[in-house]
Simulated scan of single mutants.
Amino acid sequence: MYKNIMVAVDHSPQSPQVLDEAIKLAKMSGARLHVVTIANLYEFAFDEAGRRDEGRLQVQAESKARQVLEPHLIRAEQEGVNVSAHPVVSWGAGEEIAKALINEAQDSDAEVLVMGTHGRTGLAHLFLGSVAEAVIRSAPMPVLILRSPDRH
């Protein structure tokens, strides 16, 4: 089956469910699990208005990303899965984040990418885009998408 699985998590309430599915898949196939989250420099650039120190932004974004990754890494380790975790740096939203995730999946030799979708609609979808949609359109590997349980 799979030897390498990448799972993308974030700070959303859906992430534990996404991780659980990736853990199940990793256990069934004896795969290594690579847990990633986006360290989005764009989010921190607004906080630093007028002082665009990219090095400082990267440190802040990676620090926040590691905080997001830590509980997911611990959970996977507790389940006995061979796991690694890594923040993925990106400038932007939607398509840019999707490209960063796909590049990381390819770099980590992932044979499948597991991620959630926030299910944004309307203006939120228009302005923020759908990372999941962009990944599905561009990923060269299979993608398992989990919908947010509060969306119908």
Rank of each mutant, 00 (worst) to 15 (best):
V83L: 04
M115N: 05
F44Q: 08
V18A: 11
S138G: 11
T117E: 00
H86I: 08
E104F: 01
V83A: 10
H152N: 11
M6K: 08
L123H: 06
E96T: 12
F127Q: 06
D20F: 01
Y42L: 11
P13F: 01
H118R: 14
K3S: 15
I97K: 10
I23G: 04
K24F: 06
H125W: 04
D107A: 15
D107R: 14
A85Q: 06
E104A: 15
G55R: 14
Q106R: 12
M141H: 03
A61P: 05
A134K: 07
L144Y: 08
E62Y: 03
G116A: 10
L113T: 06
P13C: 04
N4P: 03
D109V: 05
G50P: 07
P87Y: 05
T37I: 03
E48P: 05
I23W: 03
H86Q: 15
A134W: 00
P87S: 03
A100V: 05
F44N: 08
D150Y: 14
G30E: 04
I102P: 07
H86G: 12
V131R: 00
L19Q: 08
A76N: 07
A124K: 14
M28C: 09
E77H: 10
W91D: 02
L69D: 00
M6L: 15
Q60E: 11
A124P: 01
E21S: 13
P87L: 10
V35I: 15
K27L: 15
W91P: 00
V114N: 03
L69Y: 04
P149M: 13
L128H: 03
R66Q: 13
N103S: 13
S130M: 05
Y42N: 13
V135W: 05
A105R: 02
P140D: 12
V135T: 05
G94I: 07
G80H: 11
R32K: 15
A39K: 03
M28V: 14
V68C: 06
D107W: 00
V9M: 02
P149S: 13
P149F: 11
R147I: 12
V9K: 08
H118I: 03
H34D: 07
R151P: 01
S63N: 11
S84K: 07
K24N: 15
A65H: 02
R56V: 14
P140G: 13
G94L: 13
Q14L: 13
Q17C: 01
K99Y: 02
A98L: 03
V9A: 05
R32M: 09
A8S: 10
L69T: 05
R66K: 15
Y42F: 14
E95Q: 06
